[in-house]
Design a protein around this nucleic acid. Structure first.
Lengths: 209, 209
DNA sequence: AATCTGAATGAATAACCATTCATTTTGTGT
DNA sequence: ACACAAAATGAATGGTTATTCATTCAGATT
């Protein structure tokens, strides 16, 4: 476990900067050793700081982990918003761009995925994680439903509703992440994208041919 | 945390029986407290036995957890085989029955799911978990691919291959499990099944109308 | 330059927990 | 009944880790 970029930031960094530095270190530690065996000592060492540093800035390990999960959620949301902004205006293209983001190298990266799954693995046991994840999914879904509804209206598709397509698509990306996490050798991101394409082409044939 | 059915099994149970009793207790503990804070003391108390019992039968905590994951995998596989046996002979009906099993109350149960996700959350950090999960997915996929191939041949479906449909379907069930784990209030099993139906109807319209 | 303030350190503490093992209990065969 | 072997117990051990806090350090203010 390597020591991080300690020389670049001045020894006395502003409060927010140091907190972010520690959250980054936490993410790195969890992705390497797992949530179960990440200690505050590990996090401090990874950040190139001293033993007591986490409690100084976060008061407790529990709080550090909550803030780390909140950060992950917020980071995802801002990428999501960025993709929505930058992609072409049509709903079909936006939806496709979002799926490609989910399965692109920035997000569908084993290190990041390992951290998400580490938290998901404790969702039932830690109510705070559940609340954060539930809120995360909710805002994410709401925007996908809007896009899907527009597509359905445009194509006058029958026997399908926006909520169902959204449930299916977001479940699929989550599940594809798991496949990639478990079988990185035999399962790649292109294969994952093909699965999503197969669904989009099948339910929205007018839009995705 | 309650004490389990200690009176039913005789104090000196056969080796295999006691091991299974401890695995069951482990599953209960993980589903309640999470993998991270399940101790051998918890497991022993849950089983109604003494502190040192786990090391007597499993030698180490690591080994107990490995065996617990193997048991989960094996249990799933036997349910899977049972559904294949009991359902009508057509591939389309078998596939549907399997999906309904995945999202039925026996498997899509928050306590069980919490345990699966607890292990998945450590997959990147614990090579043994990864190997067990990868092998699990492999045998599971192989059988689904066969079914899908039969359906594709029957319906002479174009532009779709069995591997892709299998990837999509199993990712979807995994992801739907996560939705159910995170949002048990707003997300129910019927909603989850609708998502799967929407895919099946769309890619295999001849078979699922 | 001297002082002051908040950030950072890292050794010490106390709690927790996996593992060990000497002792006790149980069931079986004689 | 008795002896023996296997199973189970639970107190003790040693290692680990979150948290605390007295001390040190950096840099801003006067």
């Amino acid at each position: 476990m390597a020591v991080a970029e300690s020389t670049r930031t001045s020894r006395t960094a502003s409060r927010e900067l140091r907190r972010q530095q520690l959250i980054d270190a936490t993410i790195k530690c969890i992705s390497r050793k797992g949530l179960g065996s990440t200690t505050l000592g590990d996090v401090a060492k990874m950040a190139g700081l001293s033993q007591g540093i986490v409690n100084l800035h976060f008061n407790s390990k529990e709080n550090l982990l909550n803030e780390t999960l909140r950060y992950l959620s917020q980071e995802y949301r801002s990428r999501f918003a960025q993709v929505l902004e930058k992609s072409p205006p049509s709903a079909a293209e936006k939806l496709l761009a979002l799926m490609e983001m989910d399965l692109g190298p920035a997000i569908c990266d084993r290190r990041k995925l390992a951290v998400w799954f580490a938290f998901w693995g404790e969702v039932k046991a830690v109510p705070t994680y559940q609340k954060i994840c539930e809120a995360h999914d909710l805002t994410y879904s709401a925007q996908l439903i809007e896009l899907c509804q527009t597509i359905i209206d445009e194509g006058a598709y029958r026997d399908i509703d926006a909520e169902t397509v959204t449930d299916a698509l977001s479940a699929m990306t989550d599940g594809l992440w798991l496949s990639y996490l478990i079988s990185p050798r035999t399962f790649d991101r292109e294969t994952a994208l093909d699965a999503v394409y197969s669904y989009l082409r099948a339910v929205f044939p007018e839009h995705y041919e």
